[in-house]
Design a protein around this nucleic acid. Structure first.
Length: 267
DNA sequence: GGGTGATGCTGAG
DNA sequence: TCAGCCTCACCCC
């Protein structure tokens, strides 16, 4: 479930599990055997996230970079960790905790120059230490592509995925097909503010919950089933939770996007 | 047990 | 623009 909120949550959990400890690093699947051997037995100095990227730091030696991609998954265990499965690319273990990683797009070692080049291709991170709305506004102003496509472009803003792009545009009442540069400063600022607020809430809850409790008649919206915690994502053909109009979906930037034709007026 | 889709990204053409 | 990567959960038989 890897959008930016998941990645930042993992960074926080993994930091707590690893920092200051000697870590046994292996690659049960074998595809990261060389890297694992290089890191094995080092002391973790921290874990941080930027956008959808995770960085694991060590007392010395290169940084471990992990990107979960579409399928990647971390599983965390206490002392009684199961044996890794055949698909476990990376296992990191301390005396108290074990982390298993399967199916990542990237699991590699980076030197400082490679990490710098990676970060340079990424736009501002709404969950970063110093969120940068000015950079976001400037990135939108430079682009003619639809805002629904711009939000998935990690050079524009780092950390938004396919669920949040539909939900954020619904919350801000912006049609996905509008050119990015057609947004007014007020609209773009509100979109950034909503992005920061929603991703922070998602990071805290450990799940994507965009509905206002008032709209679903439930105070604890996070406890609802997944398909009831959002407004439009994967809800094509169902009534809009705000106005009752049938939600529609179409392809935008090679992914399915959803919107309410009434709440989000077409350009 | 097989088929399919999924919250992502890259590189070839 | 599109195939490919790579794993797992879920659905249907």
């Amino acid at each position: 479930m890897p959008e930016g909120h998941t990645i930042h949550r993992l960074a926080r959990l993994h930091r707590r599990a690893l920092r200051g400890r000697t870590v046994r690093v292996t690659s049960p699947q074998g595809r990261f055997a060389g890297g694992a051997a290089l890191l094995d037995g080092r002391i973790s100095t921290g874990v941080d996230a930027y956008g959808k990227h995770l960085f694991y730091r060590w007392s010395d030696g290169p940084t471990l970079h992990v990107h979960l991609g579409l399928y990647g998954k971390f599983r965390g265990y206490g002392e009684a960790a199961p044996l890794p499965t055949a698909g476990t690319r990376l296992a990191m273990a301390t005396d108290d905790a074990t982390l298993h990683l399967a199916g990542p797009t990237a699991c590699e070692l980076l030197d400082p120059g490679e990490e710098r080049r990676l970060r340079e291709r990424l736009g501002p991170d709404p969950l970063g230490r110093r969120p940068d709305p000015a950079a976001f506004l400037a990135n939108l102003a430079r682009r003619t592509l639809p805002i629904g496509a711009a939000l998935l472009d990690q050079r524009v803003v780092a950390g938004i995925g396919n669920v949040y792009r539909s939900e954020l545009l619904f919350l801000c009442r912006i049609h996905p097909d509008r050119p990015a540069q057609s947004l007014t400063d007020t609209e773009a600022s509100r979109l950034w503010a909503a992005t920061v607020a929603q991703l922070r809430a998602g990071e805290r809850a450990g799940r994507i919950v965009t509905v206002d409790p008032a709209d679903v008649g439930r105070v604890r919206a996070w406890a609802l089933p997944a398909d009831q915690r959002v407004y439009v994502y994967k809800r094509a053909g169902l009534p809009c939770r705000r106005c009752g109009t049938t939600v529609v979906s179409w392809e935008l930037a090679a992914r399915t996007i959803s919107a309410c034709p009434t709440c989000q007026p077409a350009p």
